[in-house]
């Protein structure tokens, strides 16, 4: 494991100096990312400043909700997004061989060499939104609910990792995987608002089949009201299944690649 850690550190350092080759552009990109994360909260702020909002959610609770999602997206951006970007790019240009002549498991190698500095701003925006809402709501950090909250965020990261691995695997099977990647980001938009605003069908979809609720709704619920253990158990099961499917798919993609040779 320590060799993967060293690989990760060295690669991330190089990525940083690579970004710093265009220092000015890096800061502009970071600014754009931060602005993008404020779209949701600004919309909510505007709605809450002209109306009394939506049932069951105060402004601060809503910001907590969106801050949680921003944090999850931020971590995924920093740690996972480049896995997909690199894979799709390599497959498209016939360069995936380069990953296979390294003495590592290719998925682990990609996972440890994909730190994206662009996304750090997203984590900071998420943390800022959470700090504000935690203070406003007076949330106690030393509580069972908070532990559950962190646990659900971890589960959400498992989900996002699995989805990125799935999309990366599909890059070997389909040619047009950029569009899929874009669609993935669009679908995440559903998680920007509480599941209880949607109709029954969508609520079931985002709880049981594509459990995006784990990235915002259920952690926020757990922290604010507490949730039933059965849901937590279900989400754990669901994430394990997602992870398993993604790994099987990746394995299948590798097999296909090594028998077709790119």
């Amino acid at each position: 494991m320590s060799r993967y850690l060293r690989l990760f550190l060295k690669n991330s350092a190089l990525r940083l100096s690579s970004e710093m080759a265009y220092k000015w552009n890096f800061w502009v990109k970071t600014f754009a990312v931060a602005l993008g994360d404020l779209i949701g909260p600004v919309l909510i702020l505007l709605i809450y400043s002209t109306t009394s909002g939506i049932q069951g959610w105060s402004l601060a609770e809503f910001i907590l909700f969106q801050g949680t999602l921003t944090l999850v997206i931020g971590f995924s951006h920093v740690f996972f997004t480049l896995i997909g970007v690199q894979t799709i790019d390599m497959v498209r240009h016939g360069k995936f061989d380069a990953a296979l002549i390294k003495p590592y498991n290719p998925l682990l190698y990609l996972s440890f060499t994909s730190f994206d500095w662009d996304g750090l701003a997203e984590i900071f925006v998420g943390l800022a939104l959470l700090t504000w809402s935690f203070i406003t709501l007076g949330i106690v950090i030393f509580s069972w609910n908070f532990v559950l909250y962190l646990f659900l965020i971890a589960l959400a990261l498992v989900l996002f990792y699995s989805l990125v691995v799935m999309i990366s695997s599909l890059a070997f099977l389909l040619v047009k995987s950029w569009a899929l990647f874009a669609l993935f980001f669009r679908t995440i938009d559903f998680a920007r608002y509480p599941l209880d605003i949607y109709g029954q069908g969508l609520r079931v979809l985002f709880t049981f089949f594509l459990p995006l609720g784990v990235a915002s709704f259920y952690p926020a619920k757990a922290l604010l009201d507490g949730i039933e253990l059965t849901i937590v158990l279900y989400l754990m099961l669901s994430m394990s299944i997602f992870l398993a499917i993604s790994l099987v798919l990746w394995h299948f993609a590798m097999k296909k690649y090594s028998s077709a040779g790119g």
């Binding site: 552009n25 502009v28 970071t30």
Partner: peptide
Amino acid sequence: TDISGLIKV
């Protein structure tokens, strides 16, 4: 040198 960031902004 690179306007990708500006485009995003």
